[in-house]
Design a protein around this nucleic acid. Structure first.
Ligand SMILES: [Mn+2]
Ligand SMILES: [Mn+2]
Ligand SMILES: [Mn+2]
Ligand SMILES: [Mn+2]
Lengths: 152, 152
DNA sequence: CACAAATTTTAGCCATGGCAACAAATTTGA
DNA sequence: TCAAATTTGTTGCCATGGCTAAAATTTGTG
């Protein structure tokens, strides 16, 4: 029953269970940090562009209710990424600011890479927003190298 | 306070709020379907490789408890992707099988693309597992074209 | 100032996907 | 055969991130 023709199977046989589990574990980890990453990135952008970041802005730019934003902000505060006082605009802690910088760099590399292989701008914007959280440092370096090599 | 030097800012000004909201909405949509995609894909692989897919296998390969697997399977059943009878191994519905095929194709394209730009095998395996869910059809076509052009 | 509008917070609800612990069924093997 | 081991299912807990509705605060206007 498990005697397949010894041909080189497409892939059929999933790899070692533990290896596979590690990979899925990595994806779950990424999901854990994803919200935090997008929030600090957008907060940093808003502060830079408008001088301050308000719940209303996050709400409209993320496309979620302000109640949701509040709940997430509470978590980020608890985790030391955001510092906020009641009814006042939002600030990043040092840690939050550092994370934002790293995320913006990464986001831009993913976006530029997609553009450089020919993905249309708006599509690249959409894909980058999700892909960024799942690209390893190694792959990021390769993206960066590719961009450098292919820019005029 | 909001008077920046009129230089060409890196990106600073986030784009139109509604556009941005659409992008994040897309990412949230992808997260909705992500679990289903990985499950049907793995179930299909297991059936192909071992003749059947059991809760135990999913549990060990995803690296989560069997209780979690059970809960997800219940949802996939409710959504018409998986058909299962108590204490029996798992099956895909026609719809589930179709989804699995599409997901495997997409997964493979993402993986092969990463390999073709020089990402090491295991890194490519890890990244592909997350990236696959956030790559648009358009980008996928570009990936595919790139692979075709660069295969020896 | 006073009051209306906008913003923020809170409360309470839901679905998903994690977990441990216990219960039930099936399979294995002595 | 039948007891032990394995597998599967169930229950109840938690955190996250969605929502609506209502309350509290700040802001802006007359
Ligand atoms: Mn993102
Ligand atoms: Mn981003
Ligand atoms: Mn995946
Ligand atoms: Mn996959």
């Amino acid at each position: 029953m498990s005697k397949k023709p010894a041909e080189t199977q497409k892939s059929a046989i999933p790899d070692d269970p533990e290896l596979q589990a590690q990979r899925f574990g990595r994806v779950r980890e990424a999901h854990q940090t994803e919200t935090a990453e997008d929030y600090v990135e957008l907060i940093a952008d808003l502060i830079e562009a408008q001088g301050e970041a308000r719940v209303v802005d996050l709400s409209s730019r993320f496309g979620v209710s302000h109640a949701t934003v509040n709940k997430v902000i509470a978590r980020l505060n608890r985790e030391g990424l955001v510092s906020n006082r009641k009814y006042r605009s939002l600030f990043l802690t040092d840690e939050g600011r550092e994370l934002a910088v790293r995320c913006k760099e990464r986001h831009l590399i993913v976006f530029n890479f997609l553009r450089s292989i020919g993905v249309p701008e708006e599509i690249a914007e959409i894909d980058a927003e999700g892909v960024e959280h799942h690209v390893s440092e190694e792959t990021l370096k390769i993206f960066q190298a590719y961009i450098s090599k292919h820019k005029k």
